[in-house]
């Protein structure tokens, strides 16, 4: 073997990547060629010099500067209500405006539908309420009406949840034990991510949601996960079931039911069902603390009724994530599929 060929093989040789045959050829040549031995020494010294370069440390301000740029470019990203009402709220704090609009619209809608609700639903011992069909005109001319209509168009039937949130005071039991106890080890978030959660005051109760949402958007230390907890109602009694007409040609309907409540009546466990052709499937289970923050395991179900995503929150902050593949086995990584409780428009 000549020197040129040997020198090409020397790169792999000194990195220990040569095949057995190449290694023998190289060593045979080196034994008889002083030039190539010197070349090998030079090569080793060169690579060691390059490898020996010190690592530089990032400046302390680098993370802050990156995050400042990101927050500057997307000041309200991640907040569902803010995104929905972004255009409407020019000059007004976005989340506060959105909450006010929803509250006004909910009151108007509740009052306009009360007689029918009373006639149809009370005998069943449950309260249920139909959301208006997608095409139904909202309060024409008012900002609340136009904003609500925009929301209706953007998110279809699920908007009924915000319009007619449950909220009866009853002595419901506390949450059932979390399923994660018997499940495989989930992917817990790193300490660096979790740290922001500790010591952060929980979001304000439903009545103060506007201020809470605003604070959430402004404070970099707090979670930006959108809180979409159902709000407490001012009237009604018993376990409340909501039914939302999809208004879709396929006849899909979505029903969101508060299955457990805190002692103060605020929703604790809320289950969303999808119904079509007389078949009802659970698609999502959400859990909240008394302040309306996500708390406990949120679960998304596939069409076969198996969970495909479970995310545990600790008072609004994500604690761990577990996702499953099509066979129901825990994934090593995550699918990248958006969790439905953060994207109601997906239903």
């Amino acid at each position: 073997m000549d020197c040129e060929k040997t020198r090409r093989l020397l790169h792999d040789y000194f990195e220990g990547l040569s095949s057995a045959g190449e290694k023998t050829l190289v060593e045979e040549h080196l034994a008889s060629c002083a030039d190539c031995r010197r070349f090998l020494e030079d090569l080793q010294r060169t690579v060691l010099s390059v490898k020996g370069l010190d690592e530089v440390e990032p400046p302390a301000w680098l993370t802050q500067k990156v995050m400042a740029r990101i927050r500057e470019e997307q000041p309200v990203r991640g907040h569902l209500l803010s995104r929905l009402f972004g255009r409407f709220s020019a000059g007004i704090p976005v989340a506060a405006a959105a909450t006010v609009v929803i509250a006004v619209f909910a009151v108007v809608l509740m009052r306009s539908m009360q007689p029918e609700i009373g006639r149809r639903m009370r005998p069943a011992g449950e309260e249920a309420q139909q959301a208006p069909p997608r095409e139904a005109p909202a309060v024409t001319g008012s900002p609340a009406g136009s904003a609500a209509r925009r929301k209706t168009e953007a998110h279809g039937e699920i908007k009924g949840r915000d319009v007619s949130a449950p909220g009866q005071k009853d002595a419901a039991e506390k949450a059932a034990p979390d399923r994660q106890e018997s499940a495989p080890e989930p992917q817990r978030l790193s300490e660096s991510h979790e740290r922001a959660g500790s010591g952060v005051a929980p979001a304000p109760p439903a009545a103060g949601k506007a201020a809470g949402a605003l604070r959430q958007a402004e404070m970099p230390g707090e979670t930006s996960a959108p809180a979409v907890a159902p709000r407490a109602d001012s009237e009604g009694s018993g376990v409340r079931k909501k039914e939302m007409k999809a208004g879709r040609p396929e006849g899909l309907t979505y029903e969101r039911s508060v299955e457990q409540r805190h002692a103060d009546g605020s929703p604790e466990t809320v289950v969303t069902y999808e119904a079509s052709g007389g078949v009802r499937k659970k698609i999502m289970e959400e859990r909240f603390d008394a302040q309306g923050n996500r708390h406990g395991v949120q679960t998304a179900y596939d069409p076969a009724g198996r969970p495909w995503a479970e995310v545990r929150y600790e008072h609004g902050r994500v604690d761990w994530i577990r996702e499953y593949d099509a066979g129901g086995r825990p994934r090593q990584g995550t699918s990248g599929r958006p969790w439905p409780w953060l994207h109601p428009g997906l239903h």
Binding site: L62, T63, V66, M67, I70, R71, Q74, R77, G78, H79, Q187, L189, S190, S192, H193, A196, P220, G221, E222, T223, S224, A225, P226, V318, W320, I321, Q332, G333, T334, S335, G336, P338, W339, L342, H343
Partner: peptide, 19 residues
């Protein structure tokens, strides 16, 4: 993976952890 999922759902704190 878990942090990336959070980022996709709009969690900027998760992105900060990745940074």
């Amino acid at each position: 993976g878990p942090l990336v999922s959070l980022c996709r759902n709009g969690d900027t704190d998760a992105f900060e952890a990745l940074v």
